[in-house]
Amino acid sequence: MTGKIAGARNAWLLLLAISAVSFLAAELVGERHVAIGAIMLIAAAKIAVILSRFMEVERAPKAIGRYLYGWTIGVAVIVFAMWWVAALG
């Protein structure tokens, strides 16, 4: 098994593991804002793993790579912020 194949397998195992954490956070964590923060953070982390390990985004034009990472973080942060604002109001 070459290194790249092992790398992809490890990325897969990592993704399954953190998916489970995110799911448990939603079900078990009582503090809602902690749970939502964790869910969105983990979603962004999973997408970052897919972008870097499965899609090998560094092979894409630089601007696109930056944009996709920015998009990932942006969606996670804005969704969390809008959830927070709605919870306050």
Binding site: S22, A26, I42, A43, I50, M55, V79, W83
Partner: peptide, 19 residues
């Protein structure tokens, strides 16, 4: 992979945020 990563956000936002 894009189909996969979009589902991660959709799942988090639709299913988990309100759970």
């Amino acid at each position: 992979h894009m189909v996969d990563l979009l589902w991660i956000f959709i799942f988090s936002i639709l299913y988990l945020i309100g759970a």
